[in-house]
Amino acid sequence: MSALPPHGEGVAGDRAIQQLLEAAWPADLPADDERDLRAAGAVLLRADATGVGRAKWPGLFDSTEQVIAPAFATERFRVQAVIARRDGPAGRVVVHLVWAGIDRGGTYTDGRITDWYFTPTTRNGGPAWIPQPRT
């Protein structure tokens, strides 16, 4: 597969985006870690974009932001593709997400890109990942 699907392709184009992302940036994490990080990144992105679930991460989201209307509608938000890869020193990982949504003005845009960074820690004898504040 050599080209991205056209903008506005909808869910039908998501698989192609996922495949291209994986081909461009080969996996370098254990499958379990990547699965967990991809899920965590998607949840964080949803919280960031829609406001849903921000209270779970008080260190990442300013509590005063919760009173502001979310930037994107929850019912028209979706992750199109996501990968997790090593990024730099000390085991840091980046979760790279491609997503689509309708903003407050009613404009639908796909192919949006967001990165969330995580650092490793150990909880209950197993690795865990701590999301880092966006700077």
Score class of each variant (00 low, 15 high):
Ala55Gln: 11
Gly106Ser: 11
Leu37Thr: 01
Val98Asn: 00
Thr119Asp: 13
Ala24His: 00
Gln19Val: 11
Asp87Gly: 08
Val79Trp: 06
Arg92Ile: 11
Trp25Ala: 12
Ala100Gln: 08
Arg15His: 10
His96Pro: 01
His96Trp: 05
Ala31Val: 14
Trp25Pro: 00
Leu97Ile: 11
Asp103Thr: 11
Gln80Arg: 09
Asp32Pro: 03
Thr64Glu: 14
Gly13Val: 09
Asp28Gln: 11
Arg76Ser: 14
Asn124Met: 05
Gly126Asp: 10
Pro89Cys: 03
Gly10Ser: 08
Glu65Met: 06
Val79Pro: 01
Arg35Asp: 12
Val11His: 14
Arg15Trp: 08
Trp25Cys: 03
Arg104Val: 14
Gly8Glu: 10
Leu37Val: 07
Pro6Trp: 05
Asp14Arg: 04
Thr50Trp: 05
Val93Phe: 10
Arg15Ala: 15
Ala84Trp: 05
Thr114Arg: 12
Gly51Val: 02
Trp99Pro: 05
Arg112Lys: 15
Ala3Thr: 05
Pro26Phe: 01
Ala55Lys: 12
Val98Glu: 05
Glu75Phe: 10
Pro120Cys: 02
Leu44Cys: 04
Pro89Val: 04
Val82Leu: 03
Ser63Pro: 07
Gly8Phe: 08
His96Leu: 12
Ser63Thr: 10
Ala100Ser: 15
Asp103Met: 09
Thr109Leu: 15
Val95Arg: 12
Gly105Ile: 06
Gly125Ser: 08
Thr50Ser: 10
Gly105Pro: 00
Val79His: 02
Ala73Pro: 01
Ile130Ala: 11
Ala84Phe: 01
Gly88Glu: 08
Ala27Thr: 07
Glu34Arg: 13
Thr50Asn: 05
Gln80Pro: 01
Gly51Cys: 02
Gly59Asp: 09
Asp48Thr: 13
Glu75Ile: 02
